[in-house]
């Protein structure tokens, strides 16, 4: 089963996202900040990361930069999912190696659509 790491400091968001990803067929893990997410990735790389931007300890962008430096860290598909919705943030995220970008609020259709575009599920 493909694995998804959901990184967000909001428990509610993690729960909503988990339900969507489990329905698609992912085994999910959660992390509440970038540091914990990085620890999880160091232990075992997931196939997919859904990533919030603003979090305590280590934010989403810092996490992503660190992830991409891990051995094999270029493999996971990383999709930001954040309230940051201006062009400069999007460009910064893509520059740091994000594969896609979701501006909150999101729903199952948006997530499915992004997964389709990344070729991870069939339309």
């Amino acid at each position: 089963m493909k694995t998804c790491l959901i990184v967000d400091d909001s428990r509610v968001i993690r729960k909503v996202a988990r339900q969507i990803f489990e329905a698609i067929g992912y085994a999910c893990e959660e992390a509440e900040d970038g540091r914990k997410a990085l620890d999880a990735c160091t232990a075992k790389l997931p196939d997919f990361v859904l990533l919030d931007w603003n979090m305590p300890v280590l934010n989403g962008l810092e996490f992503l930069r660190a992830l991409r430096l891990l051995p094999g860290g270029d493999k996971p598909n990383v999709v930001f999912c954040t309230t940051e919705n201006d062009l400069s943030h999007i460009q910064e995220a893509l520059g740091a190696g994000a594969n896609e970008y979701i501006m909150k609020p999101f729903d199952a259709d948006i997530i499915r659509g992004k997964l389709e575009q990344l070729g991870l599920i069939e339309s």
Binding site: Q91, L94, Q117
Partner: peptide, 11 residues
């Protein structure tokens, strides 16, 4: 702009 549109196209 999030439904169906790859973010690279948005940018």
């Amino acid at each position: 702009v999030q439904r169906g549109l790859p973010v690279a196209h948005l940018v």
